[in-house]
Amino acid sequence: MKAMRKKIKELFANGDVDVVLGYREDPASGEVKASVFKKDEMLEDMVFDERCVQNLVNYLPTLVARYSKVGIVLKGCDGRSLATQLVEHRINKNQIVALGVGCEGVKVGGKDADKCEDCPTSMSPVTDHEIGDKKQKKDPVFSKVEEIEKMSPAERWKFFAEYFERCERCYACRQICPSCYCEICVADQQEPKWIEPSAKLSANTMWHLIRAYHLAGRCADCGECERVCPQEIPMRLMNNALEKAVHELFGVRPGMDPEELPPLVVLSKEDPDTIMGGKHE
């Protein structure tokens, strides 16, 4: 923590950053929230520990529009998120100073977050400065997806329908997702109206399936959609199912390499699809 504050002070002093995105502990409530730190401001309230769950990458596009240099505190998973944004040219790397912090895992609701179980990056894959240590990379586990895959289609539908029924369509999942950045979301289009705006099973199902599919090969599994959902819909399960498919077909885990294009936008002769001469059925 000391090392991080020292580094940030140094960056401010050198004029390397205008603002730094980080986590602040509210002295009154003790809650940890995302915060934009300006020079000489509240740095003593800055924290980094297992309560710093939120992915801050989502705030970058607004901030780089207002400031020329933005520093950001990154956990490993947030770093993967940032990598997906860089490779999609949503953010210009020159405007970012990435402060990777060795992450020991985060807690959601007092328990270890599910996403930490198979975290491949304790340190962000994109860094300008690294603080703390890297840990051993973990291999992907898709145990929960495999459980669902064992169900019959009818059981699977029942499982998900119960959740979809509850969706309120507040779009917190979309709003917190760094990769959901369409100028006009498919759910908001009026003509043609792809997805009805009312919160009912059929329309909610459409929304959740389209949301998940649009993230195939792009989702870095930061798990924020699931965490912010007021109805506790297991959105990571859908994301992970697609992540698993992409991993099996292309051997790619999104966000691991800020240079590697998302597999679904690349046309390659090595693709397993039969159209490219591959053997996938």
Partner: peptide, 12 residues
């Protein structure tokens, strides 16, 4: 508004 997600849940 700097950290608000502008989701709709508060209005609901």
């Amino acid at each position: 508004s700097d950290i608000c997600l502008t989701c709709g849940i508060c209005t609901y």
